[in-house]
Simulated assay, not measured.
Amino acid sequence: MKQYLKLELLIELPNDLEIELIKPSTTQFDNSINIQTDKKMTMSVAELAEELQISNTTIYTMVSQNEIPHIKVRGRILFHRATIEKWLMNNE
């Protein structure tokens, strides 16, 4: 999984110092995190448990206690991949 993060570095440099900035030719950066994936948009309990390397029971417990973002569709518990990735980054 590729992740891109925009970083800004402010440094005061001497006037006589020559600096060459190298920028990617086709990549656009913004203030959001870009997550590129070829995987499907939603995951089941089993798929998420496998990705996080935890048990299905742990996932069901987290769902029942509203500890993890999820949706229910016709009785199935589903997880939006991008939402889970953001949730994981915010809960580190």
Rank of each mutant, 00 (worst) to 15 (best):
M1K: 04
M1I: 09
K2A: 12
K2S: 12
Y4I: 10
Y4A: 08
L5V: 12
L7M: 14
E8D: 11
E8P: 09
E8Q: 10
L9D: 04
L9M: 10
L10V: 13
L10D: 11
L10I: 08
I11Q: 10
E12K: 12
E12H: 08
P14K: 03
N15C: 11
L17P: 00
E18N: 06
I19K: 06
I19P: 00
I19S: 03
E20L: 14
E20G: 11
E20K: 11
L21S: 10
P24Y: 00
T27F: 09
Q28D: 13
Q28V: 15
Q28H: 11
F29W: 04
D30C: 09
D30A: 14
N31G: 15
N31C: 12
N31L: 15
S32M: 09
I33A: 04
N34H: 12
I35T: 09
Q36N: 11
T37H: 09
T37S: 15
D38S: 07
D38R: 00
K39H: 07
K39A: 14
K40I: 15
K40Q: 15
K40N: 09
M41W: 11
M41K: 13
M41A: 13
T42A: 15
M43Q: 05
S44K: 01
V45G: 03
V45R: 01
A46S: 14
E47F: 04
E47Y: 04
L48Q: 02
A49K: 01
A49L: 05
A49R: 01
E50K: 12
E51V: 06
E51D: 06
E51T: 03
L52T: 02
L52D: 03
L52A: 05
L52Y: 01
Q53T: 10
I54V: 15
N56F: 05
T57Q: 12
T58W: 02
Y60E: 10
Y60F: 09
Y60I: 01
T61F: 08
M62S: 07
Q65W: 06
N66C: 12
N66H: 12
P69D: 02
P69Q: 05
H70E: 05
H70T: 06
H70G: 07
K72C: 06
K72S: 14
V73I: 06
V73W: 03
R74W: 05
G75A: 02
R76W: 07
R76Y: 06
I77Y: 03
L78R: 06
F79H: 02
F79W: 00
H80Y: 14
H80L: 13
H80T: 10
R81A: 06
T83N: 11
T83F: 07
T83Y: 03
K86E: 10
K86L: 10
K86H: 14
W87L: 04
W87R: 01
W87Y: 11
L88E: 04
M89S: 13
N90Q: 05
N90R: 09
N90D: 13
N91M: 03
E92H: 13
